[in-house]
Design a protein around this nucleic acid. Structure first.
Lengths: 216, 216
DNA sequence: CTAAAACTACGGTAAACACCTTAGTCTTTT
DNA sequence: AAAAGACTAAGGTGTTTACCGTAGTTTTAG
């Protein structure tokens, strides 16, 4: 009985590459390749899936949102995340959500196969570097993991709108003009966002935006 | 006689996916799959390649650097770039370098096949949205295309070091401490970087860094 | 051995950001 | 109806960034 895998990635080429890796094996069976979180959820509602392999950045419903829904509503499905980036600040919230794995797209095929098998068998797989960052040093990250994740204290839709606009290079004044609100209001939103994310300058803010798919 | 294709991408899964797309066709032949620009150049020196399909973000020698070398030293090889991002500011310099195509990794397989065939036959393929941005409106971008690209007036290694550190969330003072130079010097570098890239705030700077693989 | 480029540094000014507080309006939830 | 949350706005203050110019030292290239 092969492991039933769902792949969700909005990049057809990448999704195909992943699928190809599994197709050459007998123990794995890719039962679906979808392009976004919405399609993933729709498929899981109707079919049996052992492992959902989700890209973090996807349109319509992103990987994190999707993972949240899957782990709460379909407890038989184990979720693993795929990402372009090495970002330990995401991991904390992923662990809280109940995700069983996190791997970069730089992972070699054979390691991916092993990781999926381990996750299927009840283990977890997290990118080595990330694990290291969480467990040793890296100052803030481990500390944040112990208290409640700032990411879970989620951003409101208005705040997401603001952070998106900031990361497009707009100043508070420009954003205010675009959204027909006072630049002071934008500043207030900005402050709240930074408090929630625990970052202290624009650079880190944009960094967060990019690594969480909050860019256009 | 199939079209001989070299694929350069540091993500094995993605490279495999692309290769797979071509392997199912008779008119195309993937002659090499390499992980970085250096390996791509080494292969091209020794073998016949019609099309080099390069990822923009690669370690050791990145896609842009690699494209530059190929178009100047191996004029028989046509270069097409693959990118995760939709960034018209890169395109301008790519065109200047002599790249024949630019496509996002969201491209469907059949369109990729067609694009490669067209490029092989002397045409060009540029992502539709990018072309639109270049040709109509988008204020600055077309203007910049006419004068020399700011990206070509390249960043020095020290400047790359600085921009990397900025995008990690460090302030000028922090960077100064880390590199044992005055924060004023960091500011000077910063000013020079922004002039070269024609951006005017941290947000746009980080955006550039992320879209050009200048992050850690 | 020059000339060019890179790296270093500072003075000065205006704008933007970071952070704090308070507070009114509106909508949603209990 | 009251509480909670979201969105709006502003006062105030210190820091950082953005952009000018100038200029010395070191490294690299012709």
């Amino acid at each position: 009985m092969p492991i039933k895998i769902l792949i969700a990635d909005d990049h057809p080429l990448i999704a195909e590459g992943i699928k190809n890796t599994f197709d050459n094996q007998t123990d794995y069976q890719v039962v679906a390749v979808v392009n976004n979180g919405k399609e993933a959820l729709e498929f899981i509602e109707q079919h049996i899936v052992d492992i959902a392999l989700l890209d973090i950045n996807m349109p319509i419903i992103d990987g994190i949102e999707c993972a949240k829904k899957i782990t709460s509503e379909f407890k038989d499905v184990k979720v693993a995340m795929l990402s372009m980036f090495q970002e330990s600040s995401i991991i904390k919230s992923l662990i809280d959500i109940g995700v069983k794995g996190y791997m970069l797209k730089t992972i070699p095929s054979d390691e991916l196969l092993l990781a999926i098998k381990n996750i299927y068998n009840g283990k977890e797989y997290f990118n080595a570097d990330v694990t290291k960052a969480l467990l040793s040093g890296d100052s803030a990250s481990f500390h944040q993991y112990q208290k409640k994740s700032p990411l879970l204290e989620e951003l409101t839709s208005r705040e997401k709108e603001i952070i998106k606009s900031i990361s497009q290079g707009n100043t508070n004044t420009q954003i205010g003009e675009k959204l027909f609100i006072s630049p002071r209001t934008v500043d207030t939103h900005r402050t709240n966002i930074m408090r929630k994310l625990d970052v202290h300058n624009v650079a880190s803010l944009i960094r967060f935006a990019f690594q969480n798919g909050l860019t256009s």
